[in-house]
Amino acid sequence: MDPRPKSFYVLSAFFALFLLFLYGPTITIAILSFQGPGGGLTFPMQGTSLHWFRDLFEQQAVGDIWGSFRRSLALGLMVMVTTVVLSVMGGLAFRKKFKGSGILFYLIITSLVIPSILVSLGVGLIFSQSGLNVHWSTSGFGSQLTWTLPFGLLIMFAVFNRFDKSYEEAARDLGATSWQTLRHVVLPIIGPSLIGVALFGFTLSYDEFARTLLTSGSYNTLPLEIFGMTTNVTTPVLYALGTLTTVFSLLMIGLFLCLALWSTRRKARAGTDAGKGMI
């Protein structure tokens, strides 16, 4: 191997600084959330304690954060399942040209680039003008799908662009029905990418703010609750909450990544041994 050029070390330093820039602030509030009871929003630390985390469990201090957490979790799971199912269906459909495929593609791009507040405003207006009540599980759910579906579909496009169709042909030649082909051939092959789609579906929904702002009704989701806190809470309890939800997000990301790794390995193990047969 060639020796490393000098630029490698310069760029490594740049990359390290970039990571520090990405993670530094989050780590800072994680440290500050262990402030002593008398501590403020910045350094120095006035001792260390779990005071602010304990505060989170007292209803009066911070409003209904546990209720909003449960709602965000439920909504995230709903959005995740819907995104995975609809993206796979859409991805399969887009392998052939169909009537309206061009329009649908442009709708997906529009959905991706449209300012979120427009979705929020528009959906809110539709519900209020037609006398329906906005609720996180109806209008909020739909608005979030306009953000997660484009990501899901674009991932599926990328997956199917690299998909070897001869596997399906082989299955068909062996007499598999189209459902059997899908269930036993296509889905296992694209399995690991579906975990990626699920990760996008869940986390984008769990953290979404603007699209749920006018569409979640009287029950807040967690990001809305946190934003509400920024205007009237001036203690490190805000950091404690931020740290907890970030840890939760990281756990979910870790879980999804492990699942993806596991299913990739499993696929490799269970996959074909053609060409490696006994001789």
């Binding site: 970039f18 990571l19 990405l22 993670y23 530094g24 602030p25 989050t26 800072t28 509030i29 500050l32 929003l41 910045t42 350094f43 990760l199 996008f200 986390t203 984008l204 769990y206 953290d207 703010f209 990001p223 946190i226 934003f227 920024t230 805000l238 950091y239 931020g242 939800t245 970030t246 997000s249 990281l250 979910m252 990301i253 990544l257």
Partner: peptide, 28 residues
């Protein structure tokens, strides 16, 4: 690459809040 993308899957609002201790008047 994953290290670069992980923050994308965490909350934007909290990532904004986390600048307060750094940039504030008495900040870092």
């Amino acid at each position: 690459f994953l290290l670069c993308t992980i923050p994308f899957w965490t909350s934007n609002i909290i990532r904004m809040i986390s600048w307060i201790p750094f940039l504030g008047r008495n900040g870092i």
